[in-house]
Nucleic acid binder design. Structure first.
Length: 522
RNA sequence: GGUGCUAUCGUCUAGCGGUUAGGACAAAAGAUUCUCAAUCUUUAAACCGGGGUUCGAUUCCCCGUAGCACUACCA
């Protein structure tokens, strides 16, 4: 029977969701949607010491912002089906709980199963003892060659083991790996990967100290119980994939084992190593979807949302970092991605993170955005710069936005491009003055003022005809006059076409600025 | 050190035995304009090295090299 596609995104709440994790979530989501399957969000909080408050909420909020819908599990929400859990971190689905720390009883049962079947054993070696072993023996590994020299249920009598446990001694449960077997992992992206079991160590599956399993055990048990069909995760998991295969086998679940797909890593832009959480602020770009406030350290990390990115741009950018369809198409909506995505077109090699291209994507989506919406995006920016937006007709602001949007990558950049529309220049750019403001400029501007004062028709056509006619008659340099005029209005040699500026400013303001400039620059 | 994965312009990538090795970002030049952008046009820019297999390898295989990942009672 063909099983319904079910995938999961399973982050651990140890901080903000990293952009590489976001891409993993995205690929899972695209795959699920394409196959009409389910997207599950599971929280892997089996390391009680690394838990960070607020991380779970952050993950859910980030996925919501990006439009990556969760069908089942923590924070399930789904636009299309209209289902929502009652709270941000609520759970939805009949295979829960979806937070591993709430699944202790389930894990107990499976740890026992492995112990009973002889696939696992109890070990009492303390971290200090293991540390000592590693120092003594060069490449010490807890495995078939060494386990009989250690303190565990293989080397002790049942009575000794029970006595230690009853006395409250802390222990772990280790997976007993049979050496010298070639374990085959079939990866949807990389093909068949073979690893010999001898290089695997007897992994800790459960620790009594916090009564929680480790990732490996919890992961297999949960994926099986939640009927996950495809495990799509980062390449850093590839080396432990054979261990997971062995676990499925030990549990007797080999026939329903999910298929694996190990995604290439996102690498640092300058070369060495995978992109890390610290790279962002060091290199001047966000590595998190949303701004993150670490309550413990008090640090704030920048996010794409706060940097002015549109979620569509982030999705598009991320999707193409490691996946590409045949052909030259670069702009993809989420729906187009769902239609076109395929795991066998995911690259095998890691992708260096190219932030510049990310900006370009945002520019594309900004250009595509409706001017009315863009204007709404821009109003808060104006307010933040002390502009009382309500004294301007919305149509005027919209016109300015339309005029200037092609010049910027982000809405926030609109301000520096068009602030002169709202604020008259009080000082003038030195470089522009040196190049464009000549000895005769004050006199010419005075003449221009006199020319414009009686002018009633303030349309671009009329002004152009009038001013150009006057320049021609006087045999002035067009560039010289127009640039001086521009400096009066803008404060520098930049901006859109001059008649666009006069049009927005209106006659009174235009003349006032010319007068001010003459008196200041004479 | 061990094991595994990977390898096309600076970057993301197309290519799936025969191509002038294509596109995009970034870069440079030109056009346009009163300016700055934008835009358009153009340019420069790559198959890691060595062996095979083959009539023919960027493409398939092997070796080397390099990069990356893993090697925890973290995920």
């Amino acid at each position: 029977m063909e099983r319904k596609v079910r995938v999961r995104f399973a982050p651990s709440p140890t901080g903000a969701l990293h952009i590489g994790g976001v891409r993993t979530a995205l690929y899972n989501y695209l795959f699920a949607r394409q196959h009409g399957g389910d997207m599950i969000l599971r929280i892997e909080d089996t390391d009680s010491t690394r838990f960070v408050e607020g991380a779970e909420e952050y993950i859910i909020e980030a996925l919501q912002w990006l439009g990556i819908e969760i069908d089942e599990g923590i924070g399930a929400w789904n636009k299309k089906q209209g289902q929502l859990t009652d709270s941000l971190c609520g759970q939805l689905g009949d295979k829960g709980p979806y937070r591993q720390s709430e699944r202790r009883a389930i894990y107990h049962q499976y740890v026992k199963q492995l112990l009973d079947s002889g696939n696992a054993y109890i070990a009492f070696d303390t971290p200090a003892e293991l540390e000592q072993k590693r120092e003594q023996i060069k490449n010490f590994q807890y495995d078939a060659t060494t386990r009989l020299q250690m303190r565990n249920s293989l080397t002790m009598t049942k009575e000794e083991v029970d006595a230690l446990i009853n006395a409250g001694t802390q222990y772990v449960v280790r997976f007993k790996i049979e050496p010298n077997e070639d374990v085959h992992v079939n990866d949807l992206i990389r093909g068949e990967v073979v690893i010999n079991s001898s290089i695997l160590d007897d992994k800790v599956l459960y620790k009594s100290a916090d009564d929680l399993p480790t990732y490996h055990l919890a992961n297999i048990v949960d994926d099986h119980l939640m009927e996950v069909t495809h495990v799509i995760r980062g390449e850093e998991w590839l080396p432990s994939a054979p261990l997971h295969v062995l676990l499925y086998r030990a549990f007797g679940w080999a026939d329903t084992m999910p298929q694996f797909a190990h995604l290439p890593l996102l690498l640092k832009p300058e070369g060495n190593g995978k992109l890390s959480k610290r790279d962002g602020d060091r290199l001047g770009f966000p590595v998190f979807p949303l701004e993150f406030h670490d309550k413990k350290t008090g640090t704030v990390s920048s996010g794409y949302r706060e940097s002015g990115y549109y979620p569509e741009a982030v999705i598009n950018f991320l999707a193409l970092l490691g996946w590409h369809q045949t052909g030259d198409k670069e702009l993809y909506s989420m729906d187009e991605l769902i239609a076109d995505f395929s795991l066998d077109r995911v690259s095998k090699a890691g992708a260096k993170f190219d932030y510049e291209k990310g900006k370009w994507f945002n520019h594309q989506y900004l250009m595509l955005r409706d001017n009315k919406l863009l204007t709404q995006d821009f109003l808060p920016v104006l307010s933040a710069h002390g502009i009382a937006t309500d004294i301007y007709p919305l149509a005027t602001i919209e016109h300015i936005v339309e005029l200037m949007k092609e010049r910027v990558n982000f809405v926030s950049e609109l301000w520096e491009q068009c602030n002169f529309f709202f604020v008259a220049p009080t000082e003038y750019d030195e470089k522009s003055l040196r190049k464009r403001w000549k000895e005769e400029s004050p006199r010419q501007m005075q003449e221009l003022l006199e020319l414009l004062e009686p002018q009633d028709d303030w349309s671009a056509e009329a002004l152009d005809e009038l001013v150009m006619g006057w320049i021609a008659k006087k045999e002035y340099g067009v560039g010289l006059v127009m640039n001086a005029f521009r400096i009066c209005l803008v404060g520098a040699a930049r901006g859109p076409h001059i008649w666009e500026i006069t049009n927005v400013l209106g006659k009174q303001e235009t003349l006032r600025r010319v007068r001010d400039a003459i008196s200041r620059l004479a």
